[in-house]
Write a protein that binds this DNA or RNA. Structure first.
Lengths: 159, 159
DNA sequence: AGCAATTGTCTCAGAACTGAACATTTCATC
DNA sequence: GATGAAATGTTCAGTTCTGAGACAATTGCT
């Protein structure tokens, strides 16, 4: 290491925030990598899995609702639903009250599929999280949740 | 909402882990969005910013070291260094001890650039994190750090 | 009713990577 | 030293999405 690193003298409050951000984004990236490898066994991206999971737990939803829940772009949700439709896992259903909108719903085949792979995936996540005790997991979830909430402008009531 | 959501009965330990994962990945995605908007003002992606920031704080590094630190793929680091080189912000320097390898270093212009925008970006992050008290930030960082560490197989000593 | 603003989704060009194959160099072992 | 295995970085084809704009339907205002 030929040259010394510069030493940016920073406000302690800023330093603390940065440290949390670094830790948070690195840990999430590592876990995401692991999760991605797992769902790739079934030829799914994490975003696709997220759509299936949302429909599995919430039932049919408007495309826009799925989009907000999975935090993808407007074009992204169309792309994802297209791909999952092509595989016969989900389908679009016209919304009777609003002819612009349509529901996205699991097909029977999709329901079976996600019903099988979701528990397996959940086990992988549980293994990853087992680095923390149950109490620590709850503390972490509580704190991180506050961070996330503070960034959402209009929290969806059906959330 | 025509149909009710199914109720997958799950092990409490798994449920707790899943909840943490959902909270973690959503919060990180939200913060990332905010961070991305901020660095986009300077025509940077988060990955590009990450490379500049690594070099800013650590000084010149081998390409592989930057790659591991920023968690991009092998092809990704070449792509990113190419782009930053084209903008005159970084440069490659041959490594005297190993002719396969090369260092990546900030140019004077790159040093000035990141030296200006890093503090601004840090302030944005600090604002985001201010949803938690300093003590809470430290607790969260401590816990999440353990998660991340447990997933890294070979922790780089120069880290 | 008529008009503007809003909302819900889709289209499409292209950005930002990933990952596998490759060339080169170094290391370890005989 | 030779020889095979491992490490470093690059290339390149392909994937996955983003974001701006278009369009259609709805809602609100007057």
């Amino acid at each position: 290491m030929p040259t010394a690193a510069p030493a940016p003298a920073t406000d302690p409050a800023v330093e603390r925030a940065l440290k949390l951000w670094v830790v948070l984004s690195r840990a999430t990236a590592s876990i995401e990598r692991r999760a991605r490898e797992d769902v790739a066994r079934h030829d799914l991206t994490l975003a696709e899995f997220g759509v299936l999971e949302a429909l599995y737990h919430k039932g049919p939803m408007l495309a826009g609702q799925v989009q907000r829940r999975t935090l993808v772009s407007s074009g992204g949700i169309t792309y994802l639903v297209d791909r999952l439709t092509a595989r016969g896992l989900v389908e679009r259903r016209p919304c009777p009250d609003d002819r612009r909108a349509n529901y996205v719903a699991l097909t029977p085949s999709g329901m079976t599929f996600i019903g099988t792979i979701f528990p397996e995936h959940a086990t992988v996540i549980a293994e990853v999280m087992s680095a923390l005790t149950p109490a620590e997991q709850e503390t972490a979830a509580h704190l991180i949740r506050q961070l996330g909430l503070s960034l959402r402008q209009a929290p969806d009531p059906s959330d």
